[in-house]
Design a protein around this nucleic acid. Structure first.
Length: 262
DNA sequence: GTCCAGGTTTTTA
DNA sequence: TAAAAACATGGA
């Protein structure tokens, strides 16, 4: 694992901690991916150059001081400090909200390799072509124009109807991400869960990974186990305004220490 | 072959 | 109201 860092950012920790599905590690340890309709190949070697580009600097969340956030979290709780020290180079990406919503709808009762496969096929099916024969993530409008059968053929399974409902509500403005950034967390959550197939967990993933609401705290099976074992009696509120960053440290740490939960 | 996967909805008691 | 079951699919 390359540990050289640009302003505290570790590519491997950030791109392989479960928040995104379109980055691939190459044989030489760099990462190839697509975001915001752009293709990028990035490594610890060319990272500082990449971060001079405003789009990628924002994507990798260079506006936030993660050293300060981590310090704030570590002072709250020693167990959290241990989780944070395991992967201090994690940052919460600024991903496209619609792509995030759609991807995490596909994540339910599914495993990560398969989620990546479905997302990739969806991009090939109706995403705009970009350089190198790659396809960007399709717009909500493009997905809304598909049929449920198209989505099943791409491997969505029973989630096909959910994706379609999300696409229609997003394309029509019924779900408005600009507004969701401003609303109180609970209200924003309520709007997202009005989409069929979106419950509290997918809503919180959308809020944290897509809308950069750093207080959102997705609670999946791993996090339920981790809370019970590592933070008994605590609720997400315990972690404060950067609870979402804490969640990511704890999630990644737990996934990589399954022996803790035997 | 059978088990399981960053859940959610529907059905059942 | 709470606990099961159903929901598709493919990689391990």
């Amino acid at each position: 694992m390359p540990m050289e860092r640009e302003n505290g950012l570790s590519l491997s920790q950030t791109l392989e901690c479960g928040q995104c599905f379109r980055w691939e590690r190459t044989a030489d340890g760099s990462y190839r991916g697509v975001a915001g309709g752009r293709r990028l190949e990035v490594s610890e070697r060319n990272l500082s150059g990449v971060l001079k580009d405003a789009f990628w600097a924002h994507y990798f969340d260079m506006e936030h001081d993660y050293g300060a956030i981590r310090g704030h979290l570590c002072r709250k709780d020693p167990v959290l400090a241990e989780a944070a020290c395991y992967a201090p180079g994690i940052r919460i990406l600024n991903q496209d909200p619609w792509e995030t919503l759609c991807s995490f709808i596909l994540s339910q009762a599914n495993n990560i390799p398969r989620i990546r496969g479905i997302v990739g096929r969806l991009c090939l099916l109706c995403g705009p072509e970009i350089e190198g024969g790659l396809c960007a993530f399709p717009s909500a409008e493009a997905v809304a124009a598909l049929s449920e059968a198209d989505l099943r053929a791409a491997g969505c399974g029973f989630r096909a109807g959910y994706v379609l409902d999300a696409a229609r509500k997003t394309a029509s403005g019924g779900v408005d991400f600009v507004r969701l950034r401003e609303l109180p967390l609970e209200t924003a959550r309520g709007e997202l869960t009005s989409i069929s197939g979106v419950g509290p967990k997918v809503a919180d993933c959308t809020l944290l990974y897509g809308l950069h609401r750093l207080d959102a705290f997705p609670m999946d099976v791993w996090m339920k186990r981790a809370m019970k074992r590592l933070f008994p009696g605590r609720t997400p509120g315990y972690f404060g305004r950067y609870a979402g960053v804490a969640q990511q440290y704890i999630f990644h740490y737990s996934r990589n220490h399954p022996e803790l939960f035997k």
